[in-house]
């Protein structure tokens, strides 16, 4: 499972900091995530998990420290540049193209990786690789029957599935999912977890998740973020047993969960 000796980790954070005005939200995060690892980030509300995602994906500039993707420093890069380097993310609040059809949503997320870039001399409808690729993703996220509906009319769970489809469509090898199962029923959660497992085979997965069942079922490693710092990081059993974690967060969450 672990990467070959000497090759850099998929994602590496070193002394990462972020302040909004005077308040420091991310207070020195060090973390290395190996290739092919499924890594969960957990922590109480407001701990800075989404902010961490926003820093990694270039949505916000950081206030200090480094982020490296496959060994390349991401300093100063825009979200689209980072995406082109093979990192793709989903959002805690569903972020799709609601007015466009489900099919169009997926097709747009394929365009760059299929090499179409800013082309104005190809017709999308005539590009078989695009059509076939889009259909394959739709099949994978189980939305083939909904392909011609505007994405905005899908049910919440379907929109979340579409969001995951958009995120993985471009073939990025580092996938970041921010609370993919938030607000879902049990059966919907099971469906999404299966989907995540399926579509991230052979990829590096970093996910924020509150549902401990999902976390312990999916993750190879867990990091616990509390108040902008990682207080524990390791295999699920070790993290679960860590007294610091018990005290700060997990005990309460586990109790609430059962």
């Amino acid at each position: 499972m672990s990467a070959g000796q000497g090759s850099p980790p998929a994602l590496e954070l070193a002394g990462l900091r972020k302040s909004f005005g005077k308040t420091e939200i991310i207070r020195g995060v060090d973390l290395a995530i190996g290739r092919g690892e499924r890594h969960a980030i957990i922590g109480p509300n407001g701990a800075g998990k989404s902010t961490l995602f926003n820093l990694i994906t270039g949505r916000f500039p950081n206030s200090g420290g480094h982020i490296r993707l496959h060994g390349n420093d991401l300093a100063g890069l825009q979200p689209f540049e980072i995406n082109r380097m093979g990192l793709s993310r989903s959002f805690q609040i569903t972020n799709i193209f609601p007015a466009m059809t489900v099919f169009e949503n997926v097709r747009c997320s394929l365009l760059w990786s299929k090499g179409y870039r800013y082309s104005f001399w190809n017709m999308v409808a005539r590009s078989r690789d695009l059509t076939l690729g889009t259909e394959a993703i739709l099949e994978q996220i189980n939305l083939t029957a909904r392909r011609n509906l505007p994405a905005g009319v899908l049910s919440y769970a379907e929109q979340r599935a579409l969001e995951i489809g958009i995120t993985i469509a471009g073939g990025a090898d580092v996938i970041m999912l921010d609370e993919p199962t938030a607000g879902m029923s049990h059966s919907e959660t099971d469906y999404i977890v299966d989907l995540i497992r399926q579509v991230t085979v052979g990829k590096t997965l970093i996910m924020v998740e509150h549902d401990m069942g999902v976390v312990f079922g999916l993750a190879d490693r867990i990091s616990v973020l509390v108040y902008g710092e990682i207080i524990a990081s390791g295999a699920p059993e070790d993290v679960r047993a860590d007294p610091k974690v018990q005290e700060a967060y997990l005990g309460a969450a586990l109790e609430a969960d059962h």
Binding site: T57, P79, F97, P98
Partner: peptide, 14 residues
């Protein structure tokens, strides 16, 4: 069209 509807999402698609 995608940028019109949701410029931010388009940026995260490359």
């Amino acid at each position: 069209n995608a940028v019109r509807d949701n410029p931010e999402r388009a940026e995260f698609l490359g």
